[in-house]
Design a protein around this nucleic acid. Sequence first.
DNA 1: TCATTTATGATAGTATTACTATTATATTTG
DNA 2: CAAATATAATAGTAATACTATCATAAATGA
Lengths: 230, 230
Amino acid sequence: MQDLFTSFSLQVNNRVYIKNPESSALGRKIVESSINLIDEVGFEAFTFRKLGLEIHSNEASIYRYFESKYKLLLYLTSWYWSWMEYRIAFGLANIPAPEERLEKAIKLLTENIELDGSFEHINEYKLNKIVIAESSKSYMTKEVDQNNKEGFFAGYKQLVGRVSDIILEINPTYKYPHMLISTLIEGAHHQRFFAQHLPRLTDAVNGEDAIIEFSKEVTFKAIGAKWPIK
Amino acid sequence: MQDLFTSFSLQVNNRVYIKNPESSALGRKIVESSINLIDEVGFEAFTFRKLGLEIHSNEASIYRYFESKYKLLLYLTSWYWSWMEYRIAFGLANIPAPEERLEKAIKLLTENIELDGSFEHINEYKLNKIVIAESSKSYMTKEVDQNNKEGFFAGYKQLVGRVSDIILEINPTYKYPHMLISTLIEGAHHQRFFAQHLPRLTDAVNGEDAIIEFSKEVTFKAIGAKWPIK
DNA sequence: TCATTTATGATAGTATTACTATTATATTTG
DNA sequence: CAAATATAATAGTAATACTATCATAAATGA
């Protein structure tokens, strides 16, 4: 993948940043180190001052890229959903059966993410941990309607829409495709967090990824499709 | 209910507060007004200073009840889950069939909450809105393991455990009862938030509460039970 | 009932946060 | 090489998240 798409870069709504961080070395460094730092200290304790110290740059310089740490978080989550859509687009290419496409999409959406190295300055493994633990803080705010109007959640909504469409291909009468998919995406994230920190809220099963299995099974049974597929 | 249980009060882990807010008029005022204020301005903008102004009391006095606004949020969410367990205990009493008990439990867990007035100083309607929008901020933190050790999430875990037990009564071989219930509780909350703010992530259906219907249907189909019940 | 404990109020103070403004110095570009 | 642009350094502000101190009010109990 690296070799084929070295210059590939993902689109993020340009209103979440003041200056595109992809456009300069400092910008990329800000993104790269913000992922490390948020992963390390958590979003609450993360500040632009600390980030500036970490990258031997200046707080004021960071503010020229992002209006606030919330906008930076929105940037990271938007990037993540855009990346996820690209993963799914490639992962589902040339699979004709909608059942198989749905199964694959759910796997891609709910699996544990590993470092994949396609993007120099983005650690997908840590970004996934941030999305799991912090992304709800990017929309569970009083500014959600304003942010939504500006299109900050477009990537996420589009992704949910695409997967819902596969469900409707399989069962055109299913009434709750968006609910099902958004519930399972958020649910899988919560389950990964719980598995680490509040295991009594989950059910670990040896030798399989219970979260993926659970998600697939729930989906296919909910929409009344055959499970397992074959 | 008011008449029968006027003096009934719910248990909250005594380590989330410094001084029990139930023990004084000021304490109850703090809880009552914090619900109004968090609902109004959101948890980020909520401060003890503003709360002090609102209740014509002193910031320092509030700190004598709660160590921080995070602990106050933990108090509110713990109270909520304790209340929810009490609602479920009463709501399920004398229903012998586990299928009916499960259906009722899911309804109680996922329905829209209205003001019920059983507790003088707690507005259940607003508290539900707070739990929906803010409760993940009480456990999605770097302190989660510490807080968990101190038992701050015991009420929630117990509730999930109880409903999971009903599932196991119906289908003792179902592998993911805790995942299913915790996913649906969180999921229903997310869906209520999305329905208000990000409707493209949900599926509104006229004339029914789609969130309750969706949750029940997913549950019964996932565990392989007959749906609808009769 | 009066002394003592306990709760609350008023005020002040500190370190940190989340910025903005200004000016100087690099770096890039035309 | 001049001009534009990006970054760095420094300083400053209002608000936050507390802590400390002391005065006063209310409750309690001997």
